[in-house]
Design a protein around this nucleic acid. Structure first.
Lengths: 333, 333
DNA sequence: TGGCCTTAGTTACACGATTAACTAGTAATA
DNA sequence: TATTACTAGTTAATCGTGTAACTAAGGCCA
């Protein structure tokens, strides 16, 4: 049988309250007793029972993390850094995968409302705002999605998608491309819209005419972007000097393959840029020029903010954190 | 305040014991009362408190999953399927990342010994056997590592690495390559050794002389394999018709890039095969020929076996599960 | 009818921690 | 010296379940 606080108390000749006090260090206990109690703990191999503590203090010591797809390197990197931070604390990371389905996301949220976690990190939720806006009775951090609800005390943390897109546009201009294509994601993905917006804005601001900007939408995956790209390249003439901003790295991979299979040389005949800078993008050929989405900062600050909220540290009250992005220049532009 | 079993009992005019009995359905309760109680539950929005239940029945309802690196697609896929299966049950998946460091793995195991999970899935542990062999007081499943401890009641689930390597060797033979190289992983990774063994065995069995087989070791990553490959290709003559089995996909990526940057045509000048068939391998050029490591089956059966052990289902007593592998033929061989 | 078994439900305690309320002893102050 | 204030502990209640032990009622049978 595992030793309990009672066993420790008996061995150290004190009351269980005193043992608990050294455990929680909320009340002063003389050094003498403290020592004796700690000694008793080690000889018995005592470890507090989390369930009992949970019940009493009404905490679960669990943090829920909901990602659309743990298989997506962008998300798995975020989770990695969330994990690193959470597991330094007393909390445990409980993982949920929504399969990028709004419906499944909703089910997970429903179940999480029942007090089975103390806090929640929602990564790139696809649920519409009204369904996301709930009466949470625990702190919530939403990652990689622009803030929509300034009234609630949800914290929003996301990279500056608009700026990233601007950077790509500026690079295209600097490199002397003449026509500009944006292949962005579904309309219900706010970041997809922001990237498109930033890209268009920057081009217009630099005197590019709207007729030289083409805009398309495709799911953020290889195949969708591959096929839309092959279509666009139907009878492409390299002297047109087009540059394509595909709003996700994996989509850019598809675009690159489509261009390569048309016999085009990148970046000479056509420029292609991505967004996210997933780990594997450094390995493909030609090296993908992209915008770094700061997974480390995203994951880390999400976890830190949440942990601070859980310890109701006033430093981290409700707010929005916008992280800066970096342009990663490789060979594809 | 959240309603408790007491509130439900009061509203339904029964004792808390009866409420508990319909909750656990361990004792017969008349349909009449059952209905009344369920009604009371829904009107109050009652949900049982997990911590209290945990304390009473001495379970945590948590399953620990330890992976070397959630960022590695092979592992994230496994986790995805573990999650799918676990979250269908009453259990929660608690994630730990060992950074592929034996030392950190040990620390995680140490903390898990303290009764904070009911079961454990260890994915591709790097800890040496003596440290892995502990006196667990909960069921354990070890994934992607050959069984070493038939005495304990740990369940081992892994793909047939040996056979996979044999398949690659046979393919090389069939395609008419004349010299054979194996770049496998570190010596302390059992699967690395099995792959090398299977490869060598199959070649020798087919009359290939040992002097035509070269064997090297490198970490399972892009850079290590890239550099060892460039070295091997120092003054390579395509008429030698070599074929290289790199024992991980990401390593094979490195080898492919090394070969390409030497101006070699794959598979004409040199054949390159990988192992794992990670998701992204389908996108690189040329398409990587590799062995599919069945992440879905690995994750799924791991979770199922563990859940069955937790419900002490006798069907799933201690044993070893070896999963079959498939050859994925693309263009690199 | 009386005794016994079964059944459906209740009472009351237990799980292992935290903590409010209390106590006894000491120090400080007038 | 008497009163108060603090200190360092203890006692006992509590969190929300599950469940062993009990009870009362009904059915069965000799």
């Amino acid at each position: 049988m595992r030793p309990t606080v009672k066993d420790v108390a008996k061995l150290a000749n004190v009351s269980t309250a005193t043992v608990s006090n050294v455990l929680t260090s909320k009340k002063y206990v003389s050094e003498e007793l403290k020592l004796k109690i700690k000694e008793a703990m080690t000889t018995l191999g005592y470890e507090p029972n989390i369930s009992a503590r949970s019940l009493k203090v009404n905490k679960t010591f669990k943090i829920g993390v909901v990602v659309p797809d743990i298989t997506n390197p962008f998300f798995s990197e975020i989770v990695k850094y969330i994990e690193k931070t959470i597991n330094k604390s007393y909390y445990q990371l409980v993982l949920y995968n929504s399969d990028d389905k709004a419906e499944k996301e909703k089910k997970i949220l429903d179940s999480l409302m029942l007090g089975i976690v103390d806090g929640l990190i929602l990564v790139a939720p696809r649920l519409e705002e009204t369904l996301l806006k709930r009466d949470y009775d625990f702190p919530v951090v939403i990652l990689d999605r622009p803030a929509f609800d300034t009234a609630s005390d949800i914290t929003f943390i996301y990279a500056d998608n608009f700026k990233g897109a601007v950077m790509i546009a500026n690079l295209f201009l600097k490199k002397g491309y003449k026509k500009y294509i944006c292949i962005t994601g579904p309309e219900d993905v706010p970041n997809a819209n922001l990237r498109l917006l930033g890209f268009r804005q920057a081009l217009l601001n630099n005197g590019i005419k709207q007729e030289n900007i083409e805009e398309y939408r495709a799911e953020f995956n290889f195949d969708a972007c591959y096929s839309i790209m092959t279509e666009l390249l139907q009878d492409y003439d390299p002297t047109q000097r087009k540059a394509v901003f595909v709003c996700s790295d994996i989509g850019a991979w598809g675009a690159i393959e489509a261009a390569k299979s048309k016999g085009l040389k990148i970046p000479r005949d056509i420029g292609i840029a991505g967004f996210d800078n997933i780990y594997f993008s450094r390995f493909i050929y030609p090296g993908l020029t992209t915008v770094e989405n700061p997974t480390k900062e995203l994951g880390q600050t999400a976890a830190l903010v949440l942990l601070n909220k859980l310890n109701d540290d006033p430093d981290f009250s409700d707010h929005t954190v916008v992280l800066d992005v970096n342009l990663i220049q490789r060979e594809s532009v």
